[in-house]
């Protein structure tokens, strides 16, 4: 464990992302008295209630009033405290968009937002409780950091690193249990703003984020059985973007597929597209996610499958993209 870390986790293989951030936050708060936890009547659902158990005096439930919560958090942060607020992504990012902009980002407040039940992970609750627009909304906010951890381990580290940095951070997690991507808390190098290469490859790169990363890795293994060499990047930080890793993928594989539990407009794929377009290099490109539609209802895994964001859908996309041709420019060999 890295120097200065004041928390440890056990049994993370069986914990949800929400359970683990609640646990890590509570442990960090034993040393860091500046941490305040807040929610809008979702202490239990978002698991921030774990904090309340140990620190009732530093926990504020503002009732069902999310925008008021953002304002109060801004005021708390103005005095040097570090509010960590948790509610569903649909409310944090959509209902509170202007408050995140004006009260938090514009005023440079040190507030951490844990947006749970993101993407289609709230499956059966239905479309109003899904959130497939938050990357787009948050990317447009100057000065915010956006993280979408892939599993409980990444969530633990993201929570810890978010507290260590100054400024507003939006951490996007799912509702329920995600199969662990990593073997242990020490088995990966997580740094905000740096993609993790999970699988090397030369034919194509799949860039995934959040709960689509596991499927991307599985797809790469299936593709390997078909003789294809697929690189997988876990792009856990959407902002600031790891342009270096994306450019490397452009140069070395010339084919990129992005996968996100989000609308393909204005999401992670669009951010990657910006980098590809700015590079001036030819690259076959495909975005997987919700194709500018509102989500249907269903079990979370079934929705991943329906929107081709699971291993099957990604393998299908890999096969399509490998068939697509592009013009090689004159300096092709030099560049590669």
């Amino acid at each position: 464990m890295a120097k200065g870390i004041t928390w440890s986790i056990e049994d993370a293989d069986h914990m949800t992302q929400a359970e683990i951030y609640g646990e890590v936050l509570t442990q960090i708060a034993k040393k860091n008295k500046k941490i305040i936890a807040m929610t809008a009547d979702l202490a239990g659902s978002t698991k921030i209630g774990r904090f309340q158990k140990d620190f009732p005096e530093r926990f504020f439930n503002v009732g069902i009033a999310e925008t008021n919560m953002m304002g109060i958090a801004s005021g708390l942060a103005a005095t040097g405290l570090i509010p960590v607020i948790s509610t569903f992504a649909a409310f944090a990012a959509l209902r509170c968009a202007e408050w995140v902009r004006t009260d938090l980002c514009y005023q440079k407040r040190n507030v951490k937002i844990i947006a749970t039940h993101s993407g289609t992970s709230f499956g059966q609750a239905g479309t109003t409780h899904h959130c497939t627009e938050d990357f787009g909304v948050m990317r447009a906010m100057a000065g915010i950091t956006i993280i979408a951890p892939a599993d409980a381990y990444e969530t633990a580290v993201a929570m810890s690193q978010a507290i260590d940095m100054d400024g507003p951070v939006y951490i996007r997690i799912g509702r329920s249990f995600e199969p662990p991507l990593h073997k242990s808390i020490d088995s990966f190098d997580f740094q905000i703003g740096k993609a993790i290469q999970l699988h090397d490859g030369t034919d194509l790169t799949v860039i995934a984020t959040g709960r689509t990363v596991n499927g991307a890795l599985e797809a790469a293994e299936i593709a390997a059985g078909q003789g294809l060499s697929v690189r997988v990047l876990d792009l856990h930080t959407i902002k600031p973007l790891d342009t270096e890793a994306i450019l490397k993928a452009v140069m070395e594989t010339r084919r990129i597929i992005t996968v996100e539990d989000h609308n393909v407009y204005c999401g992670m794929g669009s951010a990657v597209a910006d980098v590809i377009a700015s590079s001036g290099k030819g690259c076959v490109f495909k975005k997987l996610g919700l194709q500018d539609v509102f989500s249907i209802v269903g079990y979370p895994d079934d929705l991943l499958h329906y929107y081709k964001m699971d291993a099957d859908g990604i393998v299908e996309a890999i096969q399509q993209v490998m068939k697509m041709d592009f013009e090689q420019d004159e300096d092709w060999e030099d560049e590669v």
Partner: peptide
Amino acid sequence: NCTPGVEVGTGSLGQGLSVIVGMALAAKLD
């Protein structure tokens, strides 16, 4: 709040009272 003496940038009506509530809550806590 780039102006000396201005605590909070405002203008979107309805937002300021929540922020002062947050500031007062922090002071009460401390």
